[in-house]
Write a protein that binds this DNA or RNA. Structure first.
Lengths: 184, 184
DNA sequence: AGGCCCATGTAATCTGTTACATGATTCC
DNA sequence: GGAATCATGTAACAGATTACATGGGCCT
């Protein structure tokens, strides 16, 4: 029961369709949670049955019809309970780290390529986070914004997402260089 | 098929029992992968059937008997193939971030407590990583060690684990302060 | 006496991924 | 003409967690 709360939390700010939620949890975009669209639709169905969200049908002309979901009181209660519940630690679980651990088992050049690819992805994601942060902040400085701004949760989580990618980037560049240097 | 490669990679350096592997993947310890002991024993059984690892029984006097596993040629091949295969990006997926996103839904003081707890855990894990890094490095400087040292994979992954926890720590401290300040 | 460490597993359940399925509109 | 976007779902499978199950030795 974890995606469940990510959906409820996202619906705090704004009502949304399954499609929009799936976008928000797109691995390429999300700082705090990710999953496939399929899982979103499945969980939305469950949440609606449980009375935690309410969907209303919107008939559209040139687009498929859609259902917009909003948070119901029961969903808000569940979210409040969740926020105060015990939190499991989060951990890195990354194929790329396993590969670095085992880099002596194969030709290291292939691994160096992968590190460069990951670094490029990190740069891209940093740029995306910076754009989001700039949009939320507007003309305010960060300290002004976090003191009084709205949608502060989105900002704070995006900052974490950015620093995660920054560390990924630094590490990949360093490791690629270390491995390349060891090949004489 | 992901834990599978983490096990094979760990067995590159040293042979190990299921118990030792489970320790290595203990969420409290591991920089690169984590899982429950149950999963380790399950996967070891599969790997042995697949001929990728070889287990030998060691009868003990004052301890339960144990089985020590080592990498078989087929396992080494599989690992080499894995290192050069495409890598999926890794992403944060953290209950605590979801809670921060939803912090307005509940009493923020409870959340601030949780942020402090997470910060304490991060400090502890940083100390553990520092100890491991110091052990591996010995009297050498980091640049000396990564240029010529052995077990370099363990060192490089531990560095990533450390930086992850350092960012966790910085972020938790900052967010706790931001949220506390907003409660006037 | 109680708790942790060593040491191994099975079974049930929950979560998450991949494949399958459809189809119009808009942009290049 | 082809790709991307909007929009929603089902089904099969793989991966991960939790509960159950056992038991001696060591330390305080």
């Amino acid at each position: 029961m974890a995606l469940r709360h990510a959906i409820l939390a996202t619906l705090l700010d704004r009502e949304a369709t399954g499609y929009q939620l799936a976008k928000a949890f797109d691995p390429e975009v999300s700082a705090y949670w990710h999953c496939t669209p399929q899982q979103v639709y499945l969980e939305l169905a469950r949440l609606e049955v449980a009375g935690m969200i309410i969907g209303r049908q919107v008939v559209q002309q040139r687009r498929p019809n859609k259902r917009i979901f909003s948070l119901a009181p029961a969903g808000r209660d569940e979210l409040a309970r969740f926020v105060l519940s015990e939190t499991k630690p989060s951990f890195i679980r990354d194929d790329l780290l396993v590969k670095v651990l085992a880099f002596e088992a194969a030709d290291p050049r292939g691994l160096v390529d992968q590190l460069h690819q990951r670094a490029a992805l990190a740069r891209q994601r940093i740029a995306e986070f910076d754009e989001l942060l700039g949009q939320l902040r507007g003309s305010r400085s960060e300290s002004e914004y976090v003191a009084a701004g709205e949608q502060i949760g989105r900002y704070l989580t995006a900052v974490r997402g950015r620093s995660f990618e920054q560390e990924n980037l630094n590490w990949c560049v360093w490791v690629a260089q270390v491995i390349a240097a060891r090949q004489t």
